[in-house]
Design a protein around this nucleic acid. Structure first.
Lengths: 332, 332
DNA sequence: CTGAAAGCGCTAACAC
DNA sequence: GTGTTAGCGCTTTCAG
């Protein structure tokens, strides 16, 4: 930590005013005569005075810092969502305190409590699951929370910005069905998330409504390799259409299938809901459920700034549009 | 910000000790009788006391927070490097304050100053360029800084962890040469970074030593699409071997070449120095300069913890090993 | 081993 | 407009 050289007191003395006046100048308070302001500004400049944000935070009970909780850093969604969050945060002069949950190292409650101890003004939660205790901690704290691109539950308790995943999945299944595919698979990375549960529910509903007899849900598939290896299981299970939640396993499946001379999309159709940039690398080009990740992040952060300022927020639960973008991994 | 309910003072009163004793217990100071400690601990637990990190920071002049400066969030290196940084930071109980530079929004000096104002205990710098002013600000602050996976200059001023890029590039060029390619291209994303300058220098040296007459350096290529479109230029320039700094453009080049029926690797060889996970998606499989990104991040953060604690650091400039991993975009 | 007291650097009433 | 004065919640000498 930088050893403090110049404090507000030094500036006050040098400018022959009180600390209060310096504070006013620093914080843009108008109740300062122009002459005085200029004098103070000159001294600030000359002494290279920089306010100590920690002291400001303690005195004002505002840290202009928001906590950002992500599932894990390797998640590519993170990068693209965060971009939107960061841009808006920068615009409103907030800093981002980054934490991850999910890897067993530390429980989510601890992570949340830690952020709260650091007195963050608000929290953006991007992880797709949260423990009851973590949720309670969050609610008890009275700190505004916005869920970004995730969690369909908990909407009542927090703000949220996301697409309608259930609708998107249903639309994807519809494509398979129209293309005469009848043996569906759903590939999840973590079965215990709210999102997974909702998707599985939607998936099962569709299966039932259409009286399909052969269908499978595969869990714990999050890497390229796991997707690649899963193709073997597809063969055994006679799968001919698959939805994945992430692009990396989707790419693995495509490459795995091609290696086994399974023709895409004739024998196997694939739709990925990952919608990160990397989907572009895959050949044949992936059909994807494209989410506006940047916008989701930006909207979430914007909503958070409003909540932190006790501004009116019309709708605390925003549904963003998505685009089912046809590639070459589906027919027609 | 959470409105403070329980303070150290409440705990002291309830446990019938002084704040000093509570502080000792909270900070694990041994100079407390076991009985007293247990009593305090019981009260802390009962009252759900949580220390206010901002107040701790002001009083102790340590925030247990490190600043992490990245070029931009969409950079995939970031995700993988950060994973290592985050794991070690968590281990040593440090929080990460995230900032980005490079997008024209805010200059690096401002970003750095902001982090310094927040009283971070140390900084990890992952961006590949830094202004003179930013550098000066950093040095003047006396806050420990470690450069992770970047910047070959400035080593004297800061700690650093990276691979020997020049050596890696040379090795890659050697492969091209042995495979009888003679028309080399170097694809950079940003020509103004130290890294780019060093690589270009190495590249040019190789060209001169081997008396190659046809060679090109392409700048400002950072996306898939830019790589894809660049292939047209390759044709005009009769390029037959190319090194890229990032995986996304490398993937674009591969797909762009295939689309033009340019055979890889016979007519065009490609080596990417990106070494992110997404390289796996590309077919034919990319030959890559594989950097141990996770380890680089972890080492950098570990070094930073030592510097922050004034511990001895044997070598402030660490060179990590890399692996030139042959794929199918180079011959043999 | 424990307590008293003086700050850390700043903000925010409240007076004038 | 400007200054005075309490704190914000905690750490850290210094006594005892």
């Amino acid at each position: 930590m930088q050893k403090q050289e110049i404090t507000i007191y030094d500036v006050a003395r040098e400018a022959k005013v009180s600390m209060a006046t310096v504070s006013r100048v620093v914080n843009g308070n108008n109740n300062v005569r122009k002459e005085t302001r200029d004098r103070v500004l000159e001294v600030i400049d000359r002494l290279h005075y920089q306010p100590n944000a920690v002291a400001q935070g303690l005195a004002s009970k505002k840290t202009t810092t928001v906590g950002l909780i992500v599932p894990d850093f390797s998640n590519l969604h993170f990068a693209e969502l965060s971009q939107g969050i960061n841009d808006i945060a920068t615009l409103y002069k907030y800093n981002i305190l980054l934490s991850s949950v999910g890897n067993t190292l530390v429980g989510d409650e601890r992570v949340i409590q830690n952020l709260l101890n650091k007195q963050v003004d608000g929290i953006i939660y991007m992880a797709d699951q949260i423990s009851e205790k973590g949720k309670e901690t969050l609610i008890r704290s009275n700190v505004p929370v916005v869920l970004a691109g995730t969690l369909s539950e908990n909407k009542a308790d927090f703000g949220s910005v996301a697409i309608d995943y259930a609708k998107a999945i249903k639309e994807a299944l519809e494509i398979f069905y129209e293309n005469s595919k009848r043996n569906f698979a759903l590939v999840l990375d973590n079965e215990e998330t709210y999102l997974s549960e909702e998707l599985e529910h939607t998936f099962n509903n569709y299966i039932n409504e259409h009286n399909l007899s052969n269908y499978h849900v595969y869990g714990n598939i999050s890497t390229y390799e796991e997707g690649y290896d899963l193709v073997e299981q597809f063969e055994k299970d006679k799968i001919d259409a698959v939805i994945t939640l992430k692009d990396m396993p989707a790419g693995g499946i495509v490459n795995g299938a091609l290696n086994k001379n399974i023709s895409i999309p004739e024998q196997l159709e694939i739709i990925s809901a990952g919608s990160t940039n990397v989907a572009k690398l895959v050949r044949p080009q992936l059909t994807i459920i494209q989410q506006p990740l940047y916008d989701i992040g930006a909207m979430a952060m914007r909503m958070l700034t409003k909540l932190m300022n006790n501004e009116e927020v019309e709708d605390k639960n925003i549904t963003m549009p998505y685009d089912l973008k046809a590639g070459k991994t589906t027919l027609g």
